[in-house]
Nucleic acid binder design. Structure first.
Length: 575
RNA sequence: CGGGGUAUAGCGCAGUUUGGUAGCGCGCCUGCCUUGGGAGCAGGAGGCCGCAGGUUCGAAUCCUGCUACCCCGACCA
């Protein structure tokens, strides 16, 4: 295609509203425009990238026996009421009514709809396993859309749903998808890592993994073991209690004045002790109930784990008033001693503490010499904290490393959670009905596009991995007044088209600098510059966007040269 | 949902305090000129100053209400 004819509205300046790099670059390079908060229009370049990602996804889904279908975006409330998620999903769901006041939603996901299909059409175990997938828009009314395509309200997602006769077969489907995902993100040319994850709102009884594209700007924290294959989202990573050497001889409980010391830091300083000697006491409101949560002073509560302990809908810190009512003091002096009316849950490290410090539930006072179990009762001891870098790997004991990641895919083993609620059964070999085992496997297509940029850019613009690039090659004739230059460019363009290379020719009557800047910004992997001087020597210049490397190639050899480069780059990531 | 901010040309912004009918840079159009990293000169197009009320002889500017968008927060006692 010709740049002069393509809608690629590049901008010299970054729109004020774009915060993250992928958003800024996609806006500036003419990939996207915003239509509403969290809702974007995809221009031709973005559309091409989306098609490329989708194609890779399709090929790998099909290779595992997946069958592509399309499911409705507008979904009736009844189905969601049946699964119980009409109420659970809350404000995240776009809801609407038709002219008869019947309720619908814009599908945030499609478990209900697809299960409804299967329960109606699949009767026998002989029809299993059944792997159905779709690549479509999904809708989530995020409480705060941000980061451009990373957290939009309308986004493109691939979801595959697996239906199996039993848990063992379901596990096989899960393994197939896990494998497919490894292949997909490899083929996209991305650096990624699958991690153990929390199942969150989708729930389900089996395991779940998230696929993280590694990027410093990632929203998710992950830990991984440099020695073995263990890797997990910090939300999920299980913590072993780490015993710190504290004075092991228990002493008596002692009330000490700590005026003005309302933070871990202040109390530590005031009493000349260490954060790990303090018991951090937090009052949470879990659904409607207040709960006392204890972790060591140097640790952080993991609200996801806390939520899972209670199977709760909402987990929130209690308000200052609620704390005051319960403990009769300000938040800075809260402690577990004497709190008998509420449930006290403690992280596994807390019972190991001796001579600890905690708030005295009296403004300006703390206790010293506290021994959990002796001075207060713990109702439940569980892993409640967030793991930290350097802690031993739960599998092999080596110190864990941390990284940031962008979640681009997640695989869930759902078990019978949905099929039971929606009554999805088939007849088994024994002639009896059995409930289907399900899995669901999502990939954020538009988010993958954004993640690819977060991982591959420099100050000049995007550096597309070859498999995702909207075009593989751009030809830049330096001067349109030089007939020889134009002729050589057009000839090369025609030849590359014939060879089915995805090529653009920048035939705009612009100065060379403008074309170079745009080429760098959009991020074509290969740029062929054709100028009068090099052409006199019979050469053209090929520049690699990713490395900045430049090669002069004889005109007659350039088609082959480019094809070899493209094939090599594609092959290097398994295409 | 809580707090803060913004809304003026396609993009980035000034003008608002002190009311007098809109400006700068980039981009866009025409011409000349230029051609290996966002050139130069000349001419030009483009704005219901977010929306709706109000005050005033007169409102981008003051007042009221609304809407949209952005940022921060909703995580540590």
């Amino acid at each position: 295609m010709r740049v002069s004819q393509l809608l690629i509205p590049t901008l010299r300046e970054t729109p004020a509203e774009a915060e993250v790099i992928s958003h800024q670059l996609m806006y500036r390079a003419g990939f996207i425009r915003k239509t509403a908060a969290g809702v974007y229009t995809y221009l031709p370049l973005a559309h091409r990238v989306i098609q490329k990602i989708s194609r890779i996804v399709r090929e790998e889904m099909d290779a595992k026996g997946g069958q592509e279908i399309m499911l409705p975006i507008i979904q009736p409330a009844e189905l969601w009421q049946e699964s119980g998620r009409w109420a659970v999903y809350g404000d995240e769901m776009f809801r609407l009514k038709d002219r008869h006041q019947r309720e619908f939603c814009l599908g945030p996901t499609h478990e209900e709809v697809v299960t409804d299909l299967v329960r109606g059409e699949v009767r026998s175990y002989k029809q299993l396993p059944l792997l159905l997938y779709q690549i479509q828009n999904k809708y989530r009314d995020e409480r705060r859309p941000r980061f451009g395509l990373m957290r939009g309200r309308e986004f493109i997602m691939k979801d595959l749903y697996s239906f199996d006769r039993d848990a063992a077969n379901c596990k096989q489907s899960y393994a197939k998808m896990y494998d497919a995902y490894q292949r997909i993100f490899s083929r996209c040319g991305l650096s990624f890592r699958p991690v153990e994850a929390d199942a969150g709102a989708i729930g389900g009884t089996g395991g779940t993994h998230e696929f993280m594209v590694l990027a410093d700007s990632g929203e998710a924290g992950i830990v991984y073991c440099p020695q073995c294959d263990y890797a997990a989202n910090v939300e999920k990573a299980e913590c072993k209690p780490q015993v710190k050497a504290i004075d092991a001889t228990p002493s008596a409980k002692e009330l000490v004045a700590t005026p003005g010391a309302k933070t871990i830091e202040a109390v530590t300083k005031f009493l000349h002790t260490e954060p790990e000697c303090l018991i951090k006491t937090l009052i949470y409101r879990i659904d409607a109930k207040l709960v006392v949560v204890l972790v060591r002073g140097d640790r952080e509560v993991n609200e996801i784990k806390l939520n899972n302990v209670f199977g709760a809908m909402t987990v929130e810190l209690a308000s200052a008033q609620e704390v005051n009512q319960l403990c009769k003091c300000e938040t800075g002096y809260v402690g577990p001693v004497g709190l008998t009316e509420v449930e006290i849950v403690a992280d596994a490290e807390v019972p190991l503490m001796v001579n600890a410090v905690c708030g005295a539930n009296d403004n300006g006072y703390h206790f010293k010499g506290i021994k959990p179990g002796r001075d207060f009762t713990i109702n439940q001891v569980v892993d409640l904290r967030t793991i930290e870098a350097g802690e031993p790997c739960p599998k092999c004991g080596e110190p864990l490393a941390t990284a940031r990641g962008i979640e681009v895919g997640q695989v869930f083993n759902l078990g019978t959670t949905y099929s039971e609620k929606l009554n999805a059964k088939v007849l088994g070999e024994n002639g009896k009905e059995q409930t289907l085992y399900m899995g669901c496997y999502g990939i954020g297509v538009t988010r993958t596009m954004a993640a690819a940029i977060e991982q591959n850019y420099d100050q000049d613009g995007i550096k597309w991995p070859m498999p995702l690039a909207p075009f593989q090659v751009v030809i830049v004739p330096v001067n349109l007044k030089e007939q020889a230059v134009v002729d050589a460019a057009e000839k090369l363009y025609a030849e590359l088209l014939k060879q089915r290379v995805e090529v653009l020719i920048d035939d705009r009557d612009e100065r060379p600098g403008v074309k170079f800047k745009d080429a760098d910004l959009v991020g074509y992997p290969l740029r062929v510059t054709i100028g009068a001087k090099t052409l006199q020597d019979g050469n053209v210049e090929v520049k690699f966007r990713a490395t900045g490397q430049v090669e002069f190639v004889p005109v007659e050899a350039v088609v082959d040269f480019l094809q070899v480069q493209i094939a090599a780059q594609l092959a290097s990531c398994g295409n």
